[in-house]
């Protein structure tokens, strides 16, 4: 599991690649929270392009980060969803709190 960050304005683009499960969730969560804490971030955009696997532990990570940025007055979004991760998002009702966009330009423009 890998995570890389890009900051554009007050948007934190979090690119996740690999498999997000209970084992990898903790490290990913800590790394994202450190970014949010040390940079002036308002919105978080998850880039799921290279996400190969996600289970309910991943849902927990997304909900947790959503709550964080919400406290900062921000929003959470997701881009480049593949059909598998989309299935998990749909099933868990994540789209009620996380907006879906095609790419980062669209997300930045509309958040």
């Amino acid at each position: 599991m890998q995570v890389t960050f890009e900051t554009i304005g007050n948007h934190l683009i979090t690119k996740l690649s690999g498999e997000l499960d209970h084992h990898t969730a903790e490290e990913i969560r800590e790394r994202i929270d450190k970014e949010i804490a040390t940079k002036s971030i308002k919105n978080i955009i998850f880039d799921m392009k290279d996400m190969n696997f996600m289970d309910s532990s991943g849902i927990g990570v997304v909900i947790g980060r959503y709550k964080k940025v919400q406290k900062l007055g921000g929003q959470a979004a997701v881009i480049h969803l593949n059909s598998r991760v989309e299935k998990i998002f749909k099933m868990s009702g994540l789209f009620h709190i996380v907006k879906k966009f095609k790419n980062k330009n669209e997300a930045i423009e509309r958040l």
Binding site: S56, G60, M91
Partner: peptide, 14 residues
């Protein structure tokens, strides 16, 4: 406290 989503069994059943 562990930031679990509580969706485990729902995922299995789905």
């Amino acid at each position: 406290e562990l930031e679990r989503s509580g969706m485990g069994f729902t995922v299995m059943e789905t």
